[in-house]
Simulated assay, not measured.
Amino acid sequence: MSFIRGYDQETLRELVDLDECAARLAEIESQRSLPALLERVWLLKVLDRLDEALVLADETVRQARMAGTRKDVLRARVLHATILQYRGAHAAADQELTTCAAEAEGQGWASIAAFAHQHHGKNAYEAGDFDTARDSFKRSLFLRREAGAEDHELEVALLAIEAAERRRPSQLVAG
């Protein structure tokens, strides 16, 4: 079940029904499985409860390292980095997302690499680095195609590429 209803054209952040997200968070609040922890972190993020999200994201990365697979650890680290991004710690998020994308690509995990590149692009976009954002979104699109992603996932990457290109300084677009 996806809570994402679309993406803001200016910020590229997820558009969600806040009441639905709050209800879901209450429903899974006591669950301790790794998937539930990841979902709780994401819900806290979109509900703008960033302090709680960061604490839980740290715990989720630790749990993934202790009991999960390498893929689980990467997913948890990407989500952790998105919390850093939302808190305005763009340099720290950039470093984490760059590392995660490189590790996923090195392992041949195209879908996880695409996920990391997409978030790397969103972080760069928010930081005002539209060239890096566009490059990351393009890499995500390539990897999503390689992984056989569904059309709506490809569309999200295409819309992000277009948004980054619109925000680039005009002299770079003309050159």
Rank of each mutant, 00 (worst) to 15 (best):
V78D: 00
E29V: 00
L25S: 09
T132V: 01
L56Y: 03
L158G: 09
A67E: 06
L141S: 10
V173Q: 06
G88T: 07
E126F: 10
W42A: 06
D58V: 05
E103T: 03
D131S: 12
D58L: 07
A92P: 03
A124K: 11
H80P: 07
V46N: 05
L158D: 11
Q63V: 14
D151S: 15
G68A: 01
A91Y: 03
E39F: 07
E52G: 10
A23V: 02
W109I: 13
C21M: 02
H120D: 05
R62H: 10
A36V: 08
R139K: 15
A102F: 00
L97T: 07
L37A: 14
K71G: 09
A102T: 11
A102R: 01
T99K: 01
F3S: 06
R62I: 11
A113C: 07
L143Q: 04
A92N: 14
K138Q: 14
A26K: 13
K138P: 13
E146N: 04
I112K: 00
G128W: 05
E103I: 02
M66K: 11
A174G: 12
S2V: 04
F137E: 04
F115L: 05
I28P: 11
L47E: 07
N123K: 06
Q95L: 01
A64F: 09
G68W: 03
A92S: 15
A26Q: 14
A163F: 08
G6T: 01
M66D: 10
H80A: 09
L15N: 10
W109C: 10
A160Q: 03
A26N: 11
T99H: 01
A133Q: 01
F115N: 12
A76T: 12
E155A: 15
R24V: 13
Q63C: 13
A164F: 02
I161S: 09
A101L: 02
L50G: 10
D151I: 13
A89I: 05
D131G: 13
M1E: 10
H90K: 02
A101Y: 06
R134E: 15
S140C: 07
D17V: 04
K45M: 11
C21H: 02
Q31Y: 04
L56V: 09
R5H: 05
A64Q: 03
F137Y: 12
E155P: 04
A147H: 06
C21W: 00
D129I: 01
S33F: 11
G106L: 00
Q95H: 03
D131W: 09
Q9C: 07
L84C: 05
T60E: 09
R65L: 12
A127E: 08
L47S: 09
Q85A: 12
A92M: 06
